[in-house]
Amino acid sequence: MERLTLMTTPVDSATARSMRRRTERGEFLRIGHGVSTPAQAFRDASEAARHRARIDAVLAASRPGLIVSHVSAVVMHGLPWFGPLPDRVALTDPTRDRAQRLRFSDKVPARGRDVATVLIDGVETTDLVTTAIDVALRSDRGHALVVLDEVLRRGVDRHDLLAGLESRPTRRGAQRARALLELADGRVESVGESLALLVMHDLGLPRPELQHEFSVDGRCIARVDFWFPEQGVVVEFDGLVKYRAGEVRGARTAEEVVIAEKFREDAVRAVPGVRGLARLIWREVLPGGDAPSTLRRSGLPVPLASRTTPTW
């Protein structure tokens, strides 16, 4: 992950005044107590790099013993996320029994609770199990499922996640988190697929087969994101990245990718038993989107009362 340059407030008063004036002019951005970073570099950086800079800035001015957790731990572990990251850093404080909201950080109490941690770049961070459960309990279901899917994909055992959930002293949000743990699947390969799976679940559709391979004469012709065998319907999440990003397209042009996708789709539709195919895109799987109509047109039993994608 790219790392931004951090500067602490100089000791000598003249340099400190100069830094303050440059901050007032917008050249520097204060992201922690006595810690700044070049404003333009901060604006140009990725969401993850900006939040990592906030983590480093907050820890530089904090006492030892605090643990980076929740969404901030998501960043430290390099777990997937979508949308903006919070401005404040999430910290678990083993010495506190009440939450504390500060200008640059939110402290979560953990007095009397064992918090499993790992060191990442020298930063004490909640481990994958703890991070996933923290997010499942505190974030919306869309973000929570994205993290749970990836943690399972990395090899964390579902039973360890359930045990981590059961060990929490609070029951608030536990039932919702347990339902997400049952839905989560390590075979999901992208954020968009996680959200599509959540949408199909919320619409009451049967659980699909994930990453199903279609073969003809013993040769795999396609691997699809979701397959509903009883309805004969294939569902693909199309994030459009493969058409736009050069590192995904490789040497092919966007036009060549579109043509290849058309041939692949024709091959899937020709497979015996395939009666429908739906492609979901980002705006459809987000709350208020048109996913229900797209899925219904493909032949899936989406209730007529479901007009837009449910909220998380």
Rank of each mutant, 00 (worst) to 15 (best):
D106V: 06
S194A: 05
H212T: 12
F82I: 08
A144K: 00
S139T: 10
T126K: 11
D185T: 07
C220P: 11
T126Q: 14
G192V: 03
R168S: 07
L152I: 01
A179T: 08
L203Y: 07
L195C: 04
T170S: 15
R141P: 01
S139G: 07
V108Y: 15
L119W: 00
F82L: 08
T126M: 02
P80H: 13
R138H: 08
R172P: 03
L162S: 05
R207A: 15
V216L: 13
P206Q: 03
S139P: 05
P169S: 15
E193W: 06
G164T: 01
V123D: 10
R111L: 14
A177G: 02
G112P: 01
W81E: 05
T117F: 03
G218C: 11
L161P: 00
I221N: 14
C220Y: 06
A110W: 10
P169W: 06
V199L: 01
L128I: 05
S105N: 13
L102V: 10
I133S: 03
F82G: 08
G192E: 04
L161V: 00
R103T: 13
H159V: 03
C220L: 03
G83W: 05
D217I: 07
R111I: 03
P169L: 11
H212G: 13
D140K: 12
E166P: 07
D160R: 09
Q211I: 06
V108W: 13
G83S: 11
V216W: 10
R223E: 02
R176E: 00
F104E: 13
L102F: 09
M200Q: 04
R103V: 12
V123E: 01
H212R: 15
V108H: 15
A174G: 02
Q211F: 10
H201Q: 13
S167T: 12
G218E: 05
E124S: 12
R176H: 01
W81H: 14
L85I: 09
E124I: 11
D202G: 03
A90L: 02
P86H: 10
V118W: 06
L91V: 10
P206F: 11
D140F: 02
R101I: 13
H159Q: 14
A99H: 13
D202M: 13
H143M: 08
R141T: 15
R154H: 04
R138T: 14
T126W: 01
R103G: 06
D93F: 07
P84G: 11
T125V: 08
S167K: 01
G218N: 08
Q211K: 07
L102H: 06
L205D: 06
D185E: 06
L161S: 01
R223G: 00
E189N: 09
L145N: 02
Q100Y: 12
L145I: 14
G204E: 05
T130K: 02
V115R: 00
L183F: 00
K107P: 07
S167A: 15
D140I: 07
K107N: 12
L198R: 02
